[in-house]
Computed example of a mutant assay.
Amino acid sequence: MNIVEVLTLIISLLALLVTYLVFKSNETPRIVIYATPHYGKETFIRLHVKNIGKGIAEKVVIKSSQPVPRRAFGITKLNQHLEFFESGILKHGIELIFPNQEYVYDWGQYGGLVEALNDKPITFEVSYKYRYPLSLWKSPVSDRSVINIRELEALPSTTGSLIEQIGKIHRELEQLNKQLPKVSK
């Protein structure tokens, strides 16, 4: 073998390795946990657990840096007894979570969650098993998500401003209805 054939072989093998690594990283699951305002229920905040990757995660276990509050309602402060998740996926995990599969909970309201979380960010560690392409066994994988409830401060879910906006629209429509008979004459 001459030097050109050896270099060609080495470059081909490196290109194959890079292609496999890109394929491998593109096919893995990625589970994130995040909070969003609930636009259908104005002051509610939703907790999402979602696989944003392209692979199937198995034997999913979710752990958190502090107990995860449940039904933490109250716009300015917690207005009922503090509850924590004692059942469901946050307690028992998930056997399988497919790509784009999502679990959504009405988590609470801004003031209630600030108080229930002691005004501290909550960190979620999600561990699961995944069989990489061309692998014979499942490997442990983990993802980390951090939710700082203060990031939702000043959104409609913290103030209830959507109700105020709807009320303003209602009042303006009533004024228009009163003026319509005058315009039609």
Rank of each mutant, 00 (worst) to 15 (best):
E83G: 08
L152D: 04
E58H: 14
P133K: 01
E102P: 06
I45C: 04
T158W: 03
P67S: 06
S142D: 09
K54T: 13
H170P: 07
D143Q: 00
V183W: 01
V141Q: 12
K77I: 06
Y20F: 02
E83M: 11
F84H: 11
I11P: 08
L47N: 05
L9G: 09
L180V: 13
I33M: 08
F124N: 04
E42M: 11
Q175A: 15
Y110L: 02
T158K: 10
N100W: 09
T36N: 06
H38G: 15
E5A: 13
K41Q: 14
V114Y: 00
P181M: 05
E102S: 11
E153W: 07
Y39D: 12
T36Q: 07
L78V: 04
W137L: 11
Y39R: 12
I56A: 09
S157G: 05
E125S: 13
S157E: 08
G88R: 05
L47W: 02
S135F: 14
N2A: 07
R71E: 14
P181T: 06
L82W: 01
V22L: 08
T43Q: 05
Y128I: 05
H38I: 10
R71I: 10
T158I: 02
V22Y: 04
V22P: 00
Y103T: 05
S139W: 07
Q80G: 14
E42G: 12
Q165M: 09
H170A: 14
A116C: 03
L17Y: 06
E102W: 02
A15P: 05
G111A: 00
V6P: 05
Q66A: 12
P121A: 03
N26Q: 15
S161C: 09
S87D: 14
K59I: 07
I97C: 10
F85P: 12
Y105H: 12
T159P: 00
N2P: 09
I3Q: 12
K63W: 08
K182Y: 13
L117Q: 03
V68H: 03
Y110N: 04
T8N: 14
